[in-house]
Write a protein that binds this DNA or RNA. Sequence first.
RNA 1: GGGCCGCUAGCUCAGCUGGCAGAGCAGCAGACUCUUAAUCUGCGGGUCGAAGGUUCGAAACCUUCGCGGCUCACCA
Length: 528
Amino acid sequence: MEQKKTIHWADQTAEKIIETWGEKDLYTCASGITPSGTVHVGNFREMISVELVVRALRDLGKNVRFIYSWDDYDVFRKVPLNMPNPEMLEKYLRFPITMVPDPWGRDESYARHHEVDVETILPEVGIYPEFLYQASKYRSGTYAQGIRRALEMREHLKTILDKYRDEDHKIQGEWWPVAVFCSSCNRDTTQIDGWDGEWGLTYHCETCGHSETGDIRTLKGVKLVWRVDWPMRWAYEKVDFEPAGKDHHSQGGSFDTSKHVVEDVYGRKPPVTFRYDFIGIKGSPGKMSSSKGKVVDLYDLLRVYQPEVVRYLFAGTRPNTEFVISFDLDVIKIYEDYDRTERIYWGVEKAKNEDIEALERRIYELSQVDRVPEEMPYQIPFRHLCNLLQIHLGDIDQVIAALPGLKPSQEARVRRRAQCAWYWITECAPEDFRFSLRRPGERAGLSETEASALRALRDEVVANLEAYGGESEVAEAIYAVAQRCGIEPKQLFRASYQALIGKDQGPRLAGFLRAIGKEKVLAILEQY
RNA sequence: GGGCCGCUAGCUCAGCUGGCAGAGCAGCAGACUCUUAAUCUGCGGGUCGAAGGUUCGAAACCUUCGCGGCUCACCA
């Protein structure tokens, strides 16, 4: 195992972390975002990227702290399009998001609402970070020392930030590394008037006119500006690894300036990092979600993809490449890919070569919510599952009960997949893919030739359905019937589909008949 | 203006410590009386964006250029 070269990016990153920081008792991996709106799949990429690296480190026997910062002391800058009650929210612009009311009225604040959504769902994909809440950290004076340090280094900070700005964009006039939410009106529309060289900070508010001199250690509204805040927290939490989106990762971007700030001002090396790219969406995550401003979040993903497959999407893709998450026909292919990876892991299928096999195995491990199960999970192709569910009108229990050889220990995953399949077929799949079985008694409008061929099919083939060895034998029998009745096979197929599901086409008939089951088919075809 | 990423088969991409250019899909041929991207078998297909350089050897490393995208300089 040790001899093998590391091929997965998460393991490579873990090695780089150890190489950079040396052997430590505890490695800290950080992630965080501002819950200023729905936390979408793009944000999720950061969380899962960190989580995968955390796992890789732990797999190397390391002790790891995985922190997740909610930057809920940021300003509420604009009302996102997909929010309810925008008029109410409008009134709270310039407030810290943690002091904006929850427009759904469920949680104690706007920020908290988004946080709760994420914290509730993350365990489903096996992500368990330690959450840190920046609003409460700041308001409790936790960072007072760091703030004071920034004030002391004010001129140097200004130099660092100016380094990447061209002449037209140099910081003009007085600059402070801190911003203040007014104690009176809660807005950040304040100006700093002075600092006494120790803990005293004076400001006034341009909105309400409030003016005050407070102690940094107790003045709840003080916070560092972003480009100082981030590096201060790296030092405070001793962060060894934190990735960032491409918006942060460019020369002069916030990661770049933060790197200098953490070294010069807070005396610590910058964390190991990498850049993750954006995620695109293909297809629609549901009929109801086409409204304007809809952003795709983890809930949407989990309605269509079982948790292992969600992880697989991210574990199987290098973070610095852009990729799309599909809700259209590609979903079937993604599931097939996952199943193939699973078969390779369990040695049921051969990979092209050893390198690919090793990579696939690792991707599979990292895709598991918890650990790899003790036995190979029951595999049922997503497409087939969609058909079975439609035959049984979405009754998952019935479908599961009829699966041959399914062990109780394997049931949970199949059930989860079935839930996804049913959601997908009813909400996302193209119309061509959907069907529902006719009820006994319903009759399709068929010509007499078609009806008589159908009768022959019913009496000769369907009546003996279990006698056939395999699907292809059933198929052959169907063709034999067509020939004997002097009807084009195509026409017989059409008639069969019309009789069964009221459409001209459907799933491959031989397998379809078996999937529906002899009794049911006979019941539907009885009246012809 | 600075920086980052990409440019490989018709399409989507893999190939990233340099060692014979790969996969999926599409295409073509054949098979199955074949429907829900039907299935199986076989085949063809690339100046690796361009030019230089390093090297026994470059798609890969270096330099320059072209094209496309993103990003920063206001705020997080």
